[in-house]
Simulated scan of single mutants.
Amino acid sequence: MANLSFEEMWEKIMACDSSYDGLFYTAVKTTKIYCRPSCRSRKPKKINVDFYETITEAIEAGFRACKRCQPDTGLSPQMELVTGVKSFLLMHYKKPLILQDIADHAGVSPFYLERQFKQATSDTPRTYLEKVRVDKAVHLLKHSSLTNLEICYEAGFQSTSNFYKVFRTMMNCSPNEYRRLR
């Protein structure tokens, strides 16, 4: 089973290690439920656990899918949330968004959204939005003759000072220097 011993798989489920999702499934004999290794549900006793390589094996053994981690769906609930938020940010990068707006769209609390997004991407939603905006600005600097002020607003920044600050932080140069170098 993925070249992992029982003990190694046990350690992975105790650590809720999402990098092993899909490689094996944990089945709890007492509840008749199977989960992903990353499931955050209460951990079972070690003697009550079996491991299966595929969902089909777990189902054939009489187990049903966990409602919390939803191992029978393609993506984990966390990745579905993150993918949905990324899509929302790409579609609405020009709008003056705050974390509450993004969380309202996702249907979760701002704290939960930020924690899950950062865990999955190593960025906060705000940082990801700034990266999207800088990418748009870079594209416009390369392929248009718009002024920096026009690019600032076209890329979704609400103020020129924030545009210059974020651009310099991410690109290690000002928009003017970037345009000259390219």
Rank of each mutant, 00 (worst) to 15 (best):
Ala2Trp: 10
Asn3His: 14
Glu8Val: 02
Glu8His: 04
Cys16Pro: 00
Asp17Gly: 03
Leu23Thr: 10
Tyr25Leu: 00
Thr26Lys: 11
Lys29Asn: 14
Thr30His: 13
Thr30Ala: 06
Pro37Ser: 01
Cys39Asn: 10
Arg40Thr: 01
Ser41Gln: 15
Arg42Ile: 14
Lys45Ser: 07
Ile47Gln: 15
Phe51Cys: 02
Phe51Thr: 03
Glu53Tyr: 08
Glu53Met: 01
Thr54Ala: 00
Ala58Glu: 11
Phe63Thr: 01
Ala65Leu: 07
Ala65Arg: 11
Cys66Lys: 01
Cys66Gln: 08
Cys69Tyr: 04
Ser76Gln: 12
Gln78Gly: 07
Gln78Ser: 13
Val82Phe: 10
Phe88His: 01
Phe88Ile: 01
Asp104Phe: 15
His105Asp: 05
Phe111Cys: 07
Arg115Glu: 13
Gln116Pro: 00
Phe117Thr: 01
Ser122Arg: 15
Thr124Val: 01
Thr124Glu: 14
Lys131Trp: 14
Val132Phe: 09
Arg133Lys: 13
Val138Lys: 10
Val138Ala: 12
His139Met: 12
His143Cys: 03
Leu146Tyr: 08
Leu146Asp: 12
Asn148His: 06
Leu149Cys: 08
Leu149Val: 10
Thr160Gln: 13
Tyr164Phe: 10
Lys165Glu: 09
Phe167Trp: 03
Phe167Arg: 05
Ser174Asn: 02
Arg179Val: 07
Arg179His: 05
Arg180Trp: 09
Arg182Asn: 15
